[in-house]
Design a protein around this nucleic acid. Structure first.
Length: 299
DNA sequence: CACTTGACCTGTCCGC
DNA sequence: TGCGGACAGGTCAAGT
């Protein structure tokens, strides 16, 4: 599921691949994936040039020369995949998305049945917005309105920016003091960008059981958690994110962080630190992976 | 207000 | 082999 490192990886790819290109046409599936009015879309998207690709939390913002922005949330199964002109109808799957190891890619011929929106550029390249489960969305908004979206108004700080200090983190955490630490980390108003994978991984590294009540966790452990969040997200970003099921970057390629995960999807396997069996439980309504020996419950 | 649960979807996997 | 049901999880609405 695209979380901060995955969305940031997509952003970097798109920034490199589509900035400066002019949009020739747009096709959408007339579904909730792209609820905008057709006239508005034609007026502010067709003929527009891509100025910049930004990210806030798990949301991508594609700024256009018309002072409108395409705002995209991939939710669970969304993908933004760029297709070079020459490769669009190529027949060799291994190099269609830029070569590399065949297992690097999960993408076949596009568009496919998960394709929701197609952006055709003037140079014959294409950007596909795919979303198997239709939870994701793309919206067209005036660029100045983006910060006024309800989500943007309440979302918490970016954990990889230098101003994400322990004090900032802890102050927001303590507003959720009576819930589990896992629920608090998944709450986007506490901090931006953590989802199920990085919640489990950072709690393991900090030695805190996911079920622990926020208010009962010693400050020294919370400091460790603050550090482990930054470390985990930074490492994952270096590895191009995690491909658990169907995440791919802007070039259709998988990320490799999952190979470095300590607990996520490791149930039944021995903990790399202590050898104890990693178990899967349910916390905050989510599948949760813990080593009960390395992660202490504070209640 | 704090907190929890269910809904939104579809592909995959498991048991029968 | 086919089929029903559980499961996967980001966010929001509705519930306690």
């Amino acid at each position: 599921m695209p979380e901060l490192p995955e969305v940031e990886t997509v952003r970097m790819g798109l920034q490199r691949l589509i900035v400066g290109k002019t949009i020739k046409s747009i096709k959408d599936d007339n579904f909730k994936s792209f609820p905008n009015d057709t006239t508005e879309v034609k007026m502010f998207v067709i003929g527009a040039r891509v100025i910049k690709v930004r990210r806030r939390a798990k949301v991508l913002i594609i700024d256009l020369s018309t002072k409108y922005s395409l705002v995209v949330h991939l939710r669970m199964t969304g993908q933004l995949v760029f297709a070079p002109a020459a490769n669009r109808s190529a027949s060799t799957p291994d190099n269609r998305w830029g070569g590399g190891h065949p297992n690097d890619s999960l993408i076949g011929e596009l568009p496919d049945k998960s394709t929701r929106v197609i952006l055709d550029f003037a140079d014959e390249t294409t950007l596909f917005f795919n979303d198997q489960r239709k939870f994701g969305w793309m919206k067209l908004l005036p660029t100045v309105e983006v910060p006024n979206m309800p989500f943007m108004q309440k979302v918490g700080p970016e954990p990889l920016l230098p101003d994400f200090s322990f004090d900032v983190f802890n102050k927001r955490l303590q507003k959720r003091k009576n819930t589990t630490i896992k629920a608090a980390l998944l709450d986007q108003t506490v901090l931006a960008g953590i989802g199920n994978i990085y919640a489990d991984e950072s709690l393991f590294l900090a030695g805190i059981h996911s079920s622990s009540r926020v208010a009962s966790i010693p400050v020294v452990r919370l400091r460790a958690l603050h550090k482990s969040i930054i470390n985990v997200l930074t490492l994952s970003l270096q590895k191009g994110g995690s491909t658990d099921r169907n995440y791919v970057n802007a070039e259709g390629k998988k990320g490799s962080y999952i190979d470095f995960a300590k607990v996520f999807r490791k149930e039944g396997q021995p903990c790399q630190k202590c050898g104890n069996e990693i178990i899967k439980i349910r916390v905050a309504g989510r599948g949760t992976h813990v080593c009960t020996k390395c992660q202490k419950v504070y209640n």
